[in-house]
């Protein structure tokens, strides 16, 4: 198994835990981002993003999106007392992000953790870009920084 396979397995396992905390067994792109942040990423840290700030940004995106439908949460979302069981599965947004990340590497064995993060950041619409925008993150600058990381490695 290559280094990136080990990293990917580790990130997917962490992302599955993030999904379960969210009450689902479906891993989405934002769960991958949380997993990468938990593992540690120089580019995310430089942009002032860690697991806590990303979780806060995602929660803000959620309440903002609900508000667009006229739904205002007073207080926290009810948490199930039991986490979901069953095998984790990749949702569409996570699958697309991984494909985008792999596509930025010339060959799969050239793929690094930065390529995976780049795949998530290249997502043009959806939860992740909305959350980052709402948090005031310069996505273009962050994406450029991560892209530089991908080329620094080779």
């Amino acid at each position: 198994m290559s280094t990136v396979d080990h990293y990917l397995n580790h990130i997917l396992t962490t992302a599955a835990d993030e999904a379960r905390t969210d009450g689902t067994t479906t891993i989405e792109a934002h769960h991958l981002l949380l997993a990468i942040a938990r593992d540690g990423s120089p580019a995310l840290t430089a942009a002032g993003l860690d697991h806590t700030t990303i979780r806060t940004a995602l929660d803000h995106e959620f309440t903002t999106s609900l508000a667009a439908a006229g739904v205002h949460l007073a207080g926290a979302l009810p948490l199930p007392t039991t986490p979901p069981t069953g095998s984790p599965q990749l949702g569409t947004t996570a699958r697309t992000a991984l494909e985008r990340g792999l596509a930025t590497a010339r060959r799969k064995r050239d793929c690094t953790p930065a390529h995976l993060l780049l795949g998530i950041l290249l997502t043009p619409v959806g939860t992740v870009p909305r959350a980052l925008d709402l948090a005031g993150i310069d996505r273009t600058a962050l994406t450029d920084a991560v892209r530089r990381e991908t080329t620094d490695d080779h």
Binding site: S65, L66, A67, A68, A69, V71, L73, V125, G126, R130
Partner: peptide
């Protein structure tokens, strides 16, 4: 915003 709202409502309904 309205498209994002649909995803958020589905998540809320599931919870």
């Amino acid at each position: 915003d309205r498209l994002a709202a649909i995803g958020a409502l589905r998540h809320l309904a599931d919870r």
